[in-house]
Every structure is written in structure tokens, then in C-alpha cells.
Design a protein around this nucleic acid. Structure first.
Lengths: 180, 180
DNA sequence: TGGTACATGTAACATGTTACATGATTAG
DNA sequence: CTAATCATGTAACATGTTACATGTACCA
């Protein structure tokens, strides 16, 4: 067994498999919903990591159910690998923000073009914030007093604070950059 | 000529070459300094993109100077390619925040371990904020009244607001996650 | 003269993306 | 029946990372 360390994407799949067997399709949906705001994942990647983890003995495919869905189940080796991964100090975050790159070179761009980009992004972020806030309400209403999913709430709150910060940044941008 | 679209990393190198010929080493340093907070770049990538862009005729290598530094110069094709790239609508940003991934699975982790991760990240972010604020002061002092580099200031301000949001988020995290 | 910073590059690999192919199931 | 959606997967490629190799120039 090569035993090379898990990557974060594979590890998150193992994490989701703790709540029971699940197929690639469902794992993708779960990932998009739960960690989507701060961890992007593509469908191809999910199948690739599942195949690799099956080869490594971290998961096993169950009998195909309806429609060829192929639910994978965590093995004890998979559990162990996940636990090891989870206890590693997480690496610093990476942000890749193409709008900022474009803005860095704003001097080479007609002001109205940059302003249009900014406006379009502002709109997207406003929508995302609203969506996160709706999700948060749903989460806290569902479990009025208890601690429900405190960890999910905490990561959602990151998203909310992030989107608010972005929107405030847009609002304080020099007029030239927002109104051409 | 294949003419495939530039990637953002290559485009940013072309952008920097607008202020005059520069070597891979210097471009890397410039990129780290100017766009580092929101666009990570590795040394290998820089040399690879430079080689590819030279093959594509977007830049040309000048005579080697001292120490084998090989300054590249923008060609008019390179200028044109950059201009085309810059006018494209920038893609949405991507955030990959391993700490949040770990926190999502916090239920599987001893609270004091998560708390230690949080504490270590909080420290890093506090330092970054301080550094950005120092840079900002230096930038505004250098050009007291004028508009100096308004675009550089705007992107730096993004970094400042982002770091502040992260720190506030840390502060509002449930006690269990910050003090184990 | 020896260590440190400068400078360029290659190789191997890991990760991520896009496009496509294929077929099953379900709803209308 | 048929269109939309579900579901799995492959191929090709782009991008990013790590490790290493090589040598130069500067400074103490």
C-alpha cells in the first residue's frame, strides 16, 4: 500500500461517507451544498477520487442499486485515513479572485468596462449573501434551541461575513471604478 | 498560431511586462507583492508560462544580462493578447479554505485540536492584516494627495476588509471551537 | 574561500476542468 | 412516447506543486 496522504477533496468525501453509504452523484450534491462556498469540486474529480480510494481500500462499492447508482461504503481503513487527515494542521486558505486581477490592471482598461464587471459581481455577491442568510434562518429555525449542527453554522457564518465584507468593499470603491 | 486564450496567470505576467522588460525572477517577486494576496503563483509556473508565451510570440527574450538573468520584453502580439484578455468578464472567485473543511467535520475531532488550529490561523490572519495596513500607510504617505495607484489601493483594501472579516468571524465563533 | 542569496530551469506528479459518450429512469 | 433529469464514466488537457539540479554573484 502506497499510503500517500489524502488530499482534501478525497478526505471530504470520506467525511461525508461517515453518515452512511452514498453514490458519487449524491456525494457531489452534498459537497456542493455543505462545503461548496469554500471548497469547489467537480463531478469528474469525485469519480476519480472514489475510484482511487476504492483501489486503496478506503471504501468499497456496494451492489448497484437502481439506475446504476453505485453506493460506496467507508471501510475501517478509510475511517482511519480520515481521522489521520483531519488531525493535520490545515493549510492556509487560497483565494483566486480574477476580478481583483483585472482591477490591478485597471489602468489599461476603459473605466466603464471595469465598472460593468464590478456591477455584475456586486449583484452575484448580493444574491449569495441573501441565499446564505436564508439557509441560516432555515438552519436555526429547524433546531430552535439546541446545538443542531454548530459546525455547519460556523462555516456558514464565515460565508456570510465574507459576502458582507465583499459588498462593503464594493460600496467603498472609488466612484470611477463603480460608475465608469 | 493556435491562439488559445490566455490563462490568468500568464496574462498577469504580460500585464507586469507593460512597465518594461523583466526576468522571470523579478516577475515572480512582483506578482507575489502586487497580486499575492489574491493570486498565488509558483516559480515553476512563471518559467513555464514565459517559455510558452515566447513560443507563441507574445514576448521575446532579450540578451542575457548579468548572472544569466533573461529579461523578456512584450511584443505587440503580447500587448494585443493582454488587451483581449483584460476585456473578458472575470470569472467568479474561488476560495479554498482547508480550515473550514476541517471545521465542517469538527464533530469527528477533539475540541482542543480544532481550537488549536483556529488559534494558529487567527494569529496568521492578525499578522497579515497588520502587514496590509502598514503597506497601505506606506502607499498613501508616499503619494499624499494624488491618486497614485488607485487600483493597487483598491485591491489592497479588499485584502484589509477580508482579513478583518476573518478576524471578526474568529471572534464570534462558539467558545467550544476557540478554547477547546 | 565559503556561505548566502540570486537565477534559471527540468521532471514528476497531483489536481482541476472541459467536453464528450452512454444509458437508465421518471414525469408528463 | 419522449424529453428532462439522473448517473456514471473516459479522454484530453490545463494548471499547480514539489523536489531537485545547476550554476553565478556578492559579501564577509
Amino acid at each position: 500500500m502506497p499510503e500517500r496522504a489524502l488530499n482534501a477533496t478525497a478526505a471530504s468525501l470520506l467525511g461525508f461517507l461517515h453518515s452512511g453509504p452514498s453514490s458519487g452523484w449524491d456525494l457531489l450534491a452534498t459537497a456542493r451544498e455543505v462545503i461548496g462556498p469554500f471548497w469547489s469540486i467537480t463531478q469528474s474529480q469525485v469519480y476519480r477520487e472514489l475510484a482511487a480510494m476504492e483501489r486503496a481500500g478506503l471504501i468499497t462499492a456496494q451492489q448497484s442499486g437502481r439506475r446504476d447508482r453505485r453506493p460506496y461504503e467507508l471501510t475501517s481503513a478509510g475511517q482511519a485515513a480520515f481521522t489521520v487527515w483531519l488531525a493535520q494542521e490545515p493549510a492556509p486558505e487560497q483565494i483566486r479572485f480574477p476580478l481583483l486581477l483585472t482591477m490591478s490592471f485597471g489602468a489599461h482598461l476603459p473605466p466603464e468596462t471595469l465598472a460593468a464587471f464590478v456591477e455584475s459581481h456586486r449583484h452575484t455577491h448580493a444574491q449569495r449573501l441573501a441565499e446564505y442568510e436564508r439557509t441560516r434562518e432555515a438552519m436555526t429555525e429547524a433546531v430552535p434551541a439546541g446545538m443542531g449542527d454548530a459546525y455547519g453554522l460556523a462555516t456558514l457564518d464565515f460565508g456570510i461575513r465574507y459576502e458582507r465584507a465583499v459588498l462593503e468593499w464594493f460600496e467603498h470603491l472609488p466612484a470611477r471604478m463603480t460608475r465608469g
